[in-house]
Design a protein around this nucleic acid. Structure first.
Lengths: 188, 188
DNA sequence: ATTTTCATTGAATCTATATTCAATATAATG
DNA sequence: CATTATATTGAATATAGATTCAATGAAAAT
């Protein structure tokens, strides 16, 4: 394995470790030394891979943003099916793939006040609410979703999903809720 | 006005200022000096009123916990009416009474990982989810609420409410959603 | 085999902020 | 008024934790 590959591997290890710690303890409570110890490597070496703690967060949030980008040119799958499937997959992933799960939660955390400005900006730039609103509107036109401000509906939907994911992170092993409960927010 | 009253007033002023700042910038990003400047008073004087920044947070969370205590011996008001009314009032308050609004959000923040341990414990001790679950169960027995794990339903409901409140805090002036949208999570 | 480059460490800095403190002003008390 | 108690300030201190750095080891290149 070439040196560049080695470095890439190590970088990933740091990223994954940091992701887990950020989600489990929060960004500010996670010390560089904690991440280093968990990887494991010396504290100083962390700065060989990432300029700063904030850069590390930024790298994660950028990955999250790239992974989360809403697919604009969705084929004509009916909105109610789209959201239902999305939830099913998200919950399934969350049980099996810690990465997806953690990333979802980190993106939510990163959007909040008090997080480093640049990371926050990037997390907020993934405009899931606006994008979903379009599809919700389509569902309203189809007469499947309830009427009302589609952006507001979208916000309620995502607030719910985010909140549930965080609860699941907090009490691990918790059951996932019935997808229909959440779809009820949207459905007529 | 006696001195003790004066002191009490000042204490309240600090608490209200801190509450607002904690909610708007987050706990860690709010420096004691920021709170002091906003009250206004000197930084040093803050410690005449509160032992530490953490004590200040703790005082707020204790107030929140006291205010939030779920009323056990609720008269026989039907569950669906109870939750509907609760939401209506919460949203109405949030438009007019910044205090209630901010406090609700602070309690949510305080429950999260990364917040000072003691404050977190107190915030988590207000077991809204468990308490509501009982009432949800009653609603299920009445055939008004959908079947399923009442605690999980309760969690979904509160995750939604918390998430919506936070969105509202972030984009002020935002409309409040239709209470029925949220009730749809619970209702059959 | 020698040199150059990169990985790694642990200890030494640097910095931001919470916290303390000595000094002063202001108000209450006798 | 004199004394005592409390409020207030701004500057000094303490500390946690991010960041830097000089030294060392290990791998690649020549």
């Amino acid at each position: 394995m070439t040196r560049k590959e080695q470095k890439e591997e190590r970088r990933k290890a740091i990223l994954m470790t940091a992701l887990q710690l950020f989600v489990n303890r929060g960004y500010y409570d996670t010390k560089i030394a904690d991440i280093a110890a968990a990887v494991p490597m010396s504290t100083g070496l962390m700065f060989h891979y990432f300029e700063s703690k904030e850069e590390l967060l930024l790298a994660l949030v950028k990955m999250g943003a790239a992974a989360t980008k809403f697919d604009d040119k969705m084929p004509d799958i009916p909105p109610e099916v789209y959201f239902t499937e999305f939830l099913k997959r998200l919950f399934a992933f969350s049980k099996n793939e810690p990465w997806v799960f953690h990333m979802f939660i980190l993106m939510g955390q990163a959007r909040r006040v008090g997080m480093p400005e640049e990371a926050r900006k990037i997390a907020l730039s993934v405009n899931t609410i606006e994008e979903s609103a379009k599809m919700i509107q389509k569902g309203q036109e189809n007469g499947v979703f309830r009427p009302g401000d589609s952006k507001l509906l979208s916000m309620c939907f995502w607030a719910t999903v985010q909140g549930i994911m965080e609860e699941m992170a907090m009490h691990e092993g918790m059951d996932t809720p019935d997808v229909e409960w959440i779809m009820a927010i949207l459905k007529k």
